[in-house]
């Protein structure tokens, strides 16, 4: 079992990716970051993880999901994740620019664990990341990594 905090980031903007990476680094989070720029690829990836032998090692501890994705949008990705028996336990934090009430409601209804608005200033990004890690790694009891029975 790895000590790394495996984060799956589904985000299409390269700059936002860079910002998050930097934030994670500066926050001193011991992490492993998987970045997927596309919604359908993300689902594919997760499906593969689910079906692989190394599920326990591969499965992310946290999914950071942006809603503004090309092709399949964030909502659909979320739905895809949360409808899968084995994948739905993975905590999903919707991290997006929009704060629209409709979006918020919809995401929670679909099963998002948390909805967070992307901070507009970098320092806050750092705080956010640190908080997320703290919460999902230390505070909350994470879901057990159990490989789905084949």
């Amino acid at each position: 079992m790895s000590e790394e905090f495996h984060i799956l980031l589904v985000e299409d903007s390269p700059t936002d990716v860079k910002i998050l990476e930097r934030a994670l680094r500066e926050a001193g989070v011991h992490h492993r970051l998987t970045v997927i720029h596309d919604g359908s690829h993300a689902l594919e990836f997760l499906a593969n993880v689910r079906d692989s032998e190394t599920f326990d090692q591969e499965v992310p501890d946290l999914i950071l999901l942006d809603l503004n994705l090309p092709g399949l949008d964030g909502g659909q990705v979320l739905a895809g994740i949360k409808s899968d028996v084995y994948l739905r336990s993975i905590p999903v934090v919707v991290l997006t620019t929009s704060r629209r009430e409709d979006d918020v409601a919809m995401m929670y209804a679909t099963g998002a664990n948390t909805f967070i608005e992307k901070p507009s200033e970098y320092p806050r990004y750092c705080d956010l990341v640190a908080t997320l890690e703290l919460y999902w790694r230390e505070v909350a009891v994470p879901p057990p990594r159990r490989r789905p029975k084949s």
Partner: peptide
């Protein structure tokens, strides 16, 4: 506004960087 936020974020963040 939302779409503008993203490049804005990039601007501010990377300026800081």
């Amino acid at each position: 506004s939302h779409d503008l936020k993203e490049p804005l974020r990039t601007l501010t963040s990377f300026s800081d960087f």
